[in-house]
Design a protein around this nucleic acid. Structure first.
Lengths: 184, 184
DNA sequence: ACCTGAACACCGTTCAAGT
DNA sequence: ACCTGAACACCGTTCAAGT
C-alpha cells in the first residue's frame, strides 16, 4: 500500500523561500527544509534533484514576484521604485537572482514589463538599450546598497530619486546621437 | 624549541584567491587552502579567525586590485572600461565584492579615483551623485552580465559602450536641473 | 509509491598533545 | 610558538529496507 504524500514541491519551495529570507542561503539546509515541512531530509530528493536545484526554484519564485511587481507598475519612474522596493523587502531573493543560476525563462519574463515601459517612452528602436541602461543601473544601485557599499554618506532615497530623474530625463530628451562603432 | 613557520597570512590569502577564481566560493575550503600551502587545516586558524574572515581578506585583495586599476585609468570612459575588465578577468572576486562583507576602508578606497574623475568632469557639487550613478550602472551591468541575465541578444560590448557614451554625455551636458524633493 | 534509518564522504572548528 | 591528530557537530546525498 502506497505511503500517502506528506508534502509537495510547492510546500518545499515555500519553506526554502522563508528560510532564505530569514537566515540567508546558508540557512537553507536540506535538514532545515525537511524539518519545516515535517519530513526527513532524504525524502526531499523525491521532489527535488539536489540543493542547487532547490535554490534555483527559490530564485524562480523571486523572479516571479519581481515580474508581478513590475507588471503592476505604470511608467518608468514607478517601475524603478518597484524594483528597489523588491530589493528591500526580499534582499536575499534579490541577491539570489543575480548569483545562482535561475531558470532562463523565468528571469526573461522580468524584462517584458521593462521593455514595454521603455518602448512607450523612447520608441521601439531604443527600447532595448534603454531597458538595459535602466535595469543595470537599478540592479547595481540596489546591489551596492544591500552590500553596504555606499559609504560616503547622503540620503540613499534621494540618491535613487536623483538617478531616476536623471536617467529618465536623459533617455526621453537627449538620446545619444549615434551608437559608438566599437566596444571594449 | 619553537616550530618554524611553514606558511604566512599572505601565502594563505593568495592560495584562497586562486582557489576562488578557479572554482568559485565553494572551492575555497579550509582543507583545500591548507593543502595548497602545505599545511594541515587546523594550522590555518593560527593566522585567520575562521573561513568567513579568510573570504573577507580575499575580498579585500580584490578591492585593492580594482582600486589599482581604476587609479591607473584616465578619464571617465577609461575608468568604466577598466571596471568591466576587472569583472571579466576576476569574475569571482567581482561577485565577492558585492556579496561578502569586505573591509569598509578597502572598499571605500575604490571610490576615490571615481570621485576624482567625476569631480573633474562635472564639478565638485555633483561629483558624488555622478560617481554613484556611474558605479551603480557599471556594477549592475557587469553583475547581470556575469549572471547571464542579458538574454535578449545584441552585442554586450556595444551595449556597454552605448551606456558609457550616454551616461557621460548626459552628465557633462544636461545635468538634471533640480534635485527631487522626496525619495522613495 | 513514498518515506525512513543507516551510512558515507566531506565540511568547519576545537583542543590536547607533540616538537 | 607553531603544528598536528583526533574528535565533534553538521553538512549533502545515496540506498536498502520498511509500509
Amino acid at each position: 500500500m502506497p505511503t500517502p504524500e506528506r508534502t509537495s514541491l510547492d510546500v518545499i519551495v515555500a519553506a526554502a523561500v522563508r528560510l532564505l529570507e530569514e537566515g540567508g542561503p546558508s540557512a537553507v539546509t536540506m535538514q532545515a527544509v525537511a524539518v519545516t515541512v515535517g519530513v526527513k531530509a532524504p525524502s526531499l530528493y523525491k521532489r527535488v534533484r539536489d540543493r542547487e536545484a532547490l535554490l534555483s526554484l527559490v530564485g524562480a519564485d523571486g523572479a516571479d514576484d519581481l515580474t508581478a511587481r513590475l507588471e503592476a507598475a505604470s511608467g518608468l519612474d514607478d517601475l524603478l521604485r518597484a524594483f528597489r522596493d523588491f530589493g528591500h523587502e526580499r534582499p536575499e531573493a534579490f541577491r539570489l537572482l543575480f548569483t545562482t543560476a535561475v531558470d532562463a525563462d523565468r528571469l526573461a519574463a522580468t524584462s517584458a514589463p521593462v521593455l514595454r515601459a521603455t518602448t512607450s517612452a523612447v520608441g521601439e528602436e531604443h527600447a532595448l538599450d534603454a531597458a538595459r541602461l535602466l535595469t543595470a543601473w537599478a540592479t547595481g544601485f540596489v546591489t551596492m546598497e544591500l552590500a553596504g557599499a555606499f559609504r560616503l554618506g547622503g540620503d540613499l532615497d534621494e540618491a535613487y530619486a536623483y538617478g531616476r530623474a536623471h536617467l529618465i530625463a536623459s533617455l526621453t530628451r537627449g538620446q545619444v546621437e549615434e551608437r559608438p562603432a566599437q566596444g571594449s
